[in-house]
Design a binder for these strands. Structure first.
Lengths: 229, 229
DNA sequence: GCATATTGTCACAACATTGTCACATAAATC
DNA sequence: GATTTATGTGACAATGTTGTGACAATATGC
């Protein structure tokens, strides 16, 4: 299930992407109307989340215009994000062809529920399968527990390595404290950093092209690790 | 993110609500234990800010009692507000099940930081990252412990340097006595000015363009230091 | 049960961080 | 002007952190 998120608020978009990935969707980000159109054309997107206040380019002034444009060529479900609880806006959005709207601020949980509701309405089948994670030419299929780069032969991960990589890639670009990672991977409160160091080392040996200078899994000294930072 | 603010000081509660809304939370107010309980039952609240000195009704005498009652039925994060810096009170609150406490008076910024910290602890994910601090073209990302200026390559800070800078920038423009800084950075007991001098020096070397004439971290002779004065 | 794969533990090197001392410099006080 | 006090700064030792190899313990598949 691919979801396109169009917003110019970077942190908000990242939060959305996180929530979506968490729920088994594969998020794509675009930060202006132009980008949105391109991604929309090139990708078979299943649902679009669109910020009403997005500043577009010349003839496309905001989220409403973009929504209208998309509707001309596709029935893809669209959810509008808006800060205004102005009923007029909502009515306008729904008239134009949006399927639902969400008022900011929202909880990620709420958003996911909304997205799933819209998808259920749009097509009877919905339950999203766990989508593979991607980062540039690197990809990771958690279901098969294998990683690959470009067209190279896939490499198998162990159970823990896979859990670690899932957590890291799910929170792509974020700083993850060692304690949080340990809790997530082992389900322990007891923080055994040695185990984590070892696991990171083994994972790096499998996925990094140059394990000496890790590119995917960065160390944040004194804090923890982060993927794709 | 819904936050429930329980207090009987109307202006303080309004100030809190403002700060919370500013930070992207959705504030709800209640002015006595009864009201708090009702709101708490009917709303899916994400965090509660509770005044210890709140006069409750008959069997519920103050914030501690309310906190205890809430804990019986929910794990929702609770922050206690208190004027007393009585250690006994704080320990009592934390024992009862509060997640954190804040001494009055406090700055709204500080409060927001505290709320986010509690939320981060409560659920490692789904919490918006701690917002980076900014001052002109200088910025500091406490999560990554890195500082940068304009488009220059970011510079990493150590644990203590980061703690110091957080405290300074959180109280931007204010004069901070050396003792307060020491307490904040190292903990309660250690009062060693030499360590602070050294730390300030090391931090300045990393963030000041001209460490000889510090622009960001000013020395207030005989008092302490201040950021952006 | 056996062979293999996976995970945990230990030891240690390389490096980063922090605390301490010595002393320079500047301001304040007498 | 001499003396005291506060602050800045370099050097170095003590301590903490991370990466890594070796190997033992445990789990897994046959």
């Amino acid at each position: 299930m691919k979801v396109l998120i169009v917003d110019d608020d970077r942190t908000l978009a990242d939060l959305l992407a996180f929530a979506m990935r968490r729920a088994g969707f594969e998020p794509h980000l675009a930060f202006d109307a132009q980008g949105a159109m391109q991604v929309f054309d090139s990708l078979p997107v299943d649902i679009i989340i669109l910020d009403v206040n997005l500043p577009g380019t010349h003839e496309l002034k905001n989220g409403f215009d973009i929504c209208r444009e998309i509707r001309k060529v596709s029935d893809v479900p669209i959810i509008l994000l808006t800060v205004r609880d102005d009923e007029e806006d909502i009515v306008k959005g729904l008239n134009i062809g949006a399927d639902d709207y969400i008022l900011k601020p929202f909880s990620p949980k709420q958003l996911v529920a909304r997205v799933q509701a819209v998808l259920r309405r749009a097509s009877a089948e919905s339950v999203p399968e766990e989508a593979p994670y991607r980062f540039q030419d690197f990809q990771f299929d958690p279901a098969r527990r294998e990683v690959s780069r470009g067209n190279e032969a896939p490499q198998n991960l162990t159970r823990l390595e896979s859990r670690l990589l899932s957590y890291l890639m799910l929170n792509q670009g974020q700083v993850l404290p060692a304690d949080n990672i340990i809790t997530e991977v082992w389900g322990l409160d007891a923080a055994n950093t040695e185990m984590l160091r070892q696991l990171v080392h083994r994972l790096r040996m499998k996925i990094e092209q140059d394990p000496e200078n890790p590119f995917l899994i960065k160390t944040l000294p004194g804090v923890g690790y982060g993927f794709g930072i």
